[in-house]
Design a protein around this nucleic acid. Structure first.
Length: 286
DNA sequence: GTCCAGGGTCAAG
DNA sequence: CTTGACCATGGA
């Protein structure tokens, strides 16, 4: 492609686990590279020596991508802190060493995780792909931007159901309208207390406790949240509680135990649990 | 046919 | 504040 930037990293950056750990839905693997769209731009990313290469047909804003890829954070330090917590975390981190938290665009994270509710990853990806093709901006061959929030705010429920959004269609429209009304200011979310930020996110239609934490984490707002779905709950029960517990107990524990690194801890645990099909403690008891 | 998927809303208790 | 029916859709 026309433009090319090389980014040096002082540590391993694992593209596979980073783009396939459930935090994003639009990156696609082609041979040893990944292609995706962010910042209104289509790019190709692949590893070379100890760094990453980003290619695009439009000029590349290196600072944007450094932040997007999580390369402006001290990865080694955060991973070390987690590995020193206990043997479980050490194993989980080593299993996916090089897995980075992305800082995706807030509104894309919001709509994507509203769609994720009671849904599976394959179908989430399909719905989002169709959403972009129908409501996004055309870039080039088969590539579209994520739809602008004002476009989604004016979308018709019928059209969203046509692409498979199901009962989430009205949530997408309502939440987009709320964003247009300025009900949420992403900058403020990072400065208030965690309970306040969670509460504010849940004002949005289709956003409950789990989606709120996902958007705060993957939308690049804060790293001290702990999105807790069935997989995370199960592995936490198995590793730390040795019993079935409520979601609130998991959140309280994660807040105290992982603190500022809860989000990264969650991502390692989620990926580890899914890849190893770590499942129901119920099966072990019965 | 039933169950499940990175859950949330709403009404009822 | 907590609980449970209900919500579309497609793959296993």
């Amino acid at each position: 492609m026309k433009y090319k930037v090389k980014i040096k990293t002082d540590h391993a950056y694992d593209l596979d686990s980073t783009f396939d750990c459930g935090q994003c839905f639009r990156w696609e693997k082609v041979d040893e590279a990944y292609k995706g769209i962010a910042n209104q731009q289509f790019v190709l990313i692949y590893r070379q020596d100890h760094g990453l290469i980003i290619e695009s047909n439009s000029s590349i804003d290196e600072n944007f991508w450094l932040h997007y890829l999580g390369l402006d954070a001290d990865y080694n330090q955060h991973a070390d802190i987690l590995m020193q917590k206990d043997d479980h975390m050490k194993k989980a981190v080593e299993y996916s060493i090089g897995l980075h938290l992305l800082n995706q665009e807030f509104e894309e994270a919001l709509i994507s995780f509203i769609i994720s509710a009671n849904n599976n990853v394959a179908r989430i990806k399909g719905i989002i792909k169709k959403l972009c093709e129908r409501f996004g901006t055309y870039i080039d061959r088969e590539h579209y931007t994520f739809p602008a929030i004002n476009v989604l705010a004016n979308a018709k429920e019928h059209d969203l159901k046509e692409i498979g959004a199901g009962y989430r269609a009205p949530y997408i429209i309502a939440a987009s309208k709320q964003m247009m009304d300025g009900m949420i200011n992403p900058c403020e979310l990072s400065q208030m207390s965690l309970p306040e930020a969670r509460k504010m996110m849940q004002v949005l239609s289709g956003v409950g406790p789990k989606v709120a934490d996902c958007v705060l984490l993957y939308g690049g707002i804060r790293k001290d949240v702990f999105p807790t779905d069935v997989w995370v709950k199960r592995i936490m029960e198995e590793l730390y509680f040795f019993d079935e517990v409520g979601i609130q107990q998991v959140l309280n524990f994660a807040d105290k135990y992982f603190g500022q690194h809860a989000g990264l801890a969650q991502q390692f645990l989620f990926h580890y649990a899914r890849m190893n099909k770590i499942g129901t403690i119920r099966e072990k008891i019965s």
